[in-house]
Write a protein that binds this DNA or RNA. Structure first.
Lengths: 149, 149
DNA sequence: CTGACTGCAAATAGTTTGCATGACG
DNA sequence: CGTCATGCAAACTATTTGCAGTCAG
């Protein structure tokens, strides 16, 4: 079991939710990959090992995990309901491979200065930002090159 | 007629599409606000003045405008199918008011350095980024203060 | 004129809800 | 044991598609 999986289960209980085998399985499925997964993709993964778990439970569990901030969404990857296990670090952003969906985190976005400037210029009270980079990971850009040659 | 509206209509024709009254109306509706609009919201606006225009046409027109890059999506504002007229400037980002949906553009995000660093560190070939700031505009943050006092 | 465009209705996809049963704590 | 969670089916929302009539160029 990887770090974030254990933490996630603890947090779930701390949030007042029960730790059922279904929820374990769903957390496991999300933790078990570096990719971002849509509800349907999570269901598919969970379903392989536990055919009795329904899509509805996946949706409900996602809602809870999102509410507790234990998963985070990605937007750049096409679907707007794609989720990742939240990494133990706090503020962070994603670098997403458009081919395989793999996600790499990074924390230091250095946007504070820009944020202050924008706030001053526009009189907006800025609460946060959404930042994602999109590209191809080494493996996928290699594969692409082979295909084109 | 505002600048972007005229340009948009020209580009539509340049793209090989016909300029119908329905498309004009839809372009007008999106141009006529600083907010980002969902398909349903666009439909509602269009429908007030032109009750005969159907939701389907709104969807189809959005698809075309998006294909030609004449509108852009926002993500931070809740729905992932919210659109804005594309401003004449090229590369740009949005600062979105979470209360009223108003959008302000800015162009210089200064992310090139971060992009290069990430690319080096992760071996990703980076193609682009998604950046949005979320906050409250002056007007809305004033309103909020009044309510709380 | 003619192919592209529109509106309608129907199909499809994605997500949520109500309810009886089951199981965590 | 009580309550919260699950699975099913059905409801609902959002989006897409097929088709016959219409219109911009």
């Amino acid at each position: 079991m990887i770090y974030s999986e254990k933490i996630t289960e603890q947090e779930l209980r701390r949030g007042g939710y029960k730790l059922t085998p279904q929820r374990r399985a769903i957390i496991g499925a999300i933790s078990g990959t570096q990719e971002h997964l849509t509800p349907a993709a999570i269901y598919k993964r969970v379903h392989r090992k536990h055919p009795s778990i329904g899509l509805v439970t996946v949706y409900r569990t996602i809602d809870i995990l999102a509410e507790l901030d234990l998963i985070c969404e990605t937007h750049a990857g096409g679907s707007c309901r794609s989720y990742l296990m939240r990494r133990p670090s706090g503020h962070h952003h994603h670098l997403i491979c458009s081919e395989c969906g793999r996600v790499v985190d990074f924390t230091d976005c250095g946007l504070e200065k820009l944020e202050r400037r924008l706030s001053k210029e526009t009189s907006f009270k800025i609460n946060g930002h959404l930042l994602e980079f999109i590209g191809q990971c080494l493996e996928c850009s290699r594969k692409q090159k082979e295909k084109n040659s």
